[in-house]
Amino acid sequence: MLLIHCPHCREDREEEEYSYSGEAHIVRPLEPEALSDEDWGDYLFFRKNPRGIHHEMWYHAVGCRRYFYATRNTLSYEILETYKVGEQPQVRAQGAVQ
């Protein structure tokens, strides 16, 4: 069971207080109607699922009810950082594009 630091509550809390909300930093297209089915499909369905460093979204469901981001190693489950929506990760996978 993970121990997750909520950047809003500023506390380490048990995983059971949170729910996982998928990959972070996916921006909704500003003009969905301008996109082809394929491009819209990419936004809708395609996720990175990396082996290693992953930026993902968590929801402090029974805490402060805030969403935030976490950088987690999907191999070791180590959480390297958590940060607020609007902020950028400090830790990135090698070779990742800024």
């Binding site: 909300s21 929801y59 805030r66 609007g86």
Partner: peptide, 17 residues
């Protein structure tokens, strides 16, 4: 109910703050 509340929060907090 709970899922809808999380859904509203999600869009407000992450996409349209």
């Amino acid at each position: 109910a709970a899922g809808v509340l999380a859904w509203l929060e999600l869009w407000q907090q992450t996409e349209w703050p």
